[in-house]
Amino acid sequence: MQALHSARRAFSQKVSLGTGAFVTSVTDSIREVLREGGALPVDIATLDDADDLYAAGLTSHATVNLMLGLEEKFDIEFPDHLLRRRTFESIASIRAAITELLGNEVAA
């Protein structure tokens, strides 16, 4: 939960913090979910943000657990149009989806 709070705080302070700190915080939280959930058969630290998670061994059922883990961590709910294979294909694509969701929420 600490990471979630820091991610949300980072977002709400995005202007003062700058986009860079926000992105780093979200990325760290995503990596934490991937590490703690055991979704991958490899060490997440060995993967770059753009690396293909499916190629690294992410299965369909593990993607479901990853989705649920991210929803809990960021207190969000992925809408239907984001429940796609490509949303979860890399840390960068997950970050884009979460940034979009957090952004919409704050803007609303």
Binding site: S60, M67, L83, R84, R85, R86
Partner: peptide
């Protein structure tokens, strides 16, 4: 369920 929507989308994508 919701997880199923993603599994279905995965199945179609592949």
């Amino acid at each position: 369920g919701r997880a199923g929507r993603m599994l279905a989308a995965n199945q179609r994508d592949q």
